[in-house]
Computed example of a mutant assay.
Amino acid sequence: MSHLALHVPVWLSATYPDPTSREAEPLPLERLMVAQDTGGAIRGEIRGDVFWGFGAEAEEIAGRMANKGRYWLLLPTPLAAKLLESQNGG
């Protein structure tokens, strides 16, 4: 799969910048999210963009967010099996 489909539930495991201190260690970010748009800031493969909301704190986090992480697509079993089969030449 080369692109993440919109509206797919995704489990995200990453970190994010502490908005209270530039020197602090990143904070854990583990939550269920939904792919909602393609985002103008998303460039290249295997990248994502998190909407942090509005206001000074959200702007502080978003401006420094460049953290690595992992995500898992949450798909119904029959669909996941079909995708795996198509990727394996079946």
Rank of each mutant, 00 (worst) to 15 (best):
M1W: 13
S2I: 11
S2M: 14
S2T: 15
S2W: 14
S2P: 12
H3G: 15
L4H: 04
L4F: 09
A5Y: 02
A5G: 07
L6M: 10
V8N: 05
P9W: 06
V10A: 11
S13Q: 09
A14F: 06
T15H: 00
Y16D: 10
P19V: 01
S21N: 14
S21Q: 14
S21G: 13
E25Y: 03
L27H: 03
P28Y: 07
P28W: 10
P28M: 10
P28T: 07
L29I: 01
E30F: 01
R31G: 06
V34H: 02
A35K: 04
Q36N: 12
D37Y: 04
D37P: 06
T38H: 14
T38K: 11
G40L: 13
A41K: 13
A41W: 12
G44D: 03
E45Y: 14
I46M: 13
I46N: 15
D49A: 10
V50R: 10
W52R: 10
G53T: 09
F54C: 02
F54V: 12
F54T: 12
A56E: 13
E57S: 12
E57K: 03
E57F: 06
E59L: 14
I61Q: 01
A62R: 09
R64L: 04
M65H: 04
M65W: 01
A66V: 08
N67G: 07
N67Y: 03
K68V: 08
R70C: 06
R70A: 04
R70M: 04
R70I: 02
Y71P: 02
W72Q: 08
L73C: 08
L73W: 08
L75I: 06
L75K: 03
L75M: 11
L75C: 10
P76S: 05
P76I: 01
P76Y: 00
T77Y: 04
L79K: 13
A80C: 12
A81C: 15
K82E: 05
K82A: 13
L83Y: 06
E85Q: 12
E85H: 07
S86H: 05
Q87W: 00
Q87K: 06
Q87Y: 00
G89P: 06
G89L: 09
G90D: 09
G90A: 11
